[in-house]
Amino acid sequence: MNLELIGITLLCLASVFGEDKYTSKYNNIDLDAIIRNERLLKVYFRCLTEGVGCTPEGNHLRKVLPEAIQTGCAKCTEEHKRGARKVVKFLMEEKPQFWEKLVNFYDPDKIFRERFKQQLLTEGIKI
């Protein structure tokens, strides 16, 4: 299971478009509160996969996620990357059905999966 691209993209959950880096506007989002709350997690999941019920943060993530995946999160700060790793690890271990659907949605041609596989393994995320 290669969920690496979603991890990279979810890193940007707490970000907003910026010129060189995504801004820190959403850095105060409590990722633990989202991933540990089934209702909130489903809200963000539906936003990302269906465009339904999006919060402003979810809408932003939905917009930047494809770019973040394509560029390997080039505009992400270290804080964004830490957050993404946390979310990816949680989804892979606790919600594999969500993870698989996100990966298939954002990388249907499996272009980015291999690109990020080694990076995730290096960061201690088992694929």
Rank of each mutant, 00 (worst) to 15 (best):
M1E: 14
N2Q: 03
L3I: 15
L3W: 12
E4A: 14
E4T: 15
E4H: 05
I6S: 03
I6C: 12
I8D: 03
I8N: 04
T9A: 13
L11D: 15
C12R: 05
L13M: 06
A14M: 06
A14Q: 14
S15F: 03
V16S: 12
F17G: 08
G18Q: 04
G18D: 03
E19L: 01
Y22S: 02
Y22G: 01
Y22I: 01
Y22N: 02
T23R: 05
S24Q: 07
S24L: 10
S24G: 10
K25P: 12
K25I: 09
K25N: 11
N27E: 09
N27L: 07
N28T: 07
N28L: 08
I29D: 05
I29A: 02
D30V: 02
D32N: 13
A33K: 09
A33Y: 07
I34S: 01
I34W: 01
I34L: 04
I35W: 09
R36L: 14
N37C: 09
N37G: 14
N37K: 05
N37H: 13
E38C: 04
E38H: 15
E38A: 10
R39V: 12
L40D: 14
L40M: 11
L40G: 02
L40R: 11
K42W: 06
K42M: 14
V43K: 11
V43R: 08
Y44M: 02
F45S: 02
F45I: 01
C47T: 00
E50H: 11
E50D: 08
V52Q: 11
G53N: 11
G53C: 08
C54P: 02
T55E: 10
T55S: 15
E57A: 15
N59K: 10
L61I: 03
L61F: 01
L65Q: 07
L65M: 14
P66H: 01
E67H: 09
A68C: 10
A68T: 13
Q70W: 11
Q70E: 15
T71I: 05
G72F: 03
A74K: 07
A74G: 10
C76S: 09
T77Q: 12
E79K: 06
H80C: 03
R82W: 06
R82S: 15
G83F: 02
A84G: 15
V87Y: 06
V87R: 01
V88M: 06
K89F: 07
K89T: 11
F90D: 13
M92R: 03
E93G: 01
E94S: 13
E94A: 14
K95V: 01
F98E: 06
F98L: 10
W99Y: 15
E100C: 12
K101A: 08
K101G: 00
K101E: 12
K101S: 10
V103N: 07
N104G: 09
N104K: 08
F105C: 09
Y106N: 04
Y106T: 05
D107G: 00
P108I: 02
D109W: 06
D109G: 06
I111W: 00
I111C: 01
I111F: 08
F112E: 08
F112R: 00
R113G: 13
R115H: 06
F116K: 07
K117Q: 08
Q119Y: 05
Q119R: 09
L120P: 00
L121V: 13
T122G: 13
I125A: 05
I127E: 12
I127V: 15
I127C: 12
I127S: 10
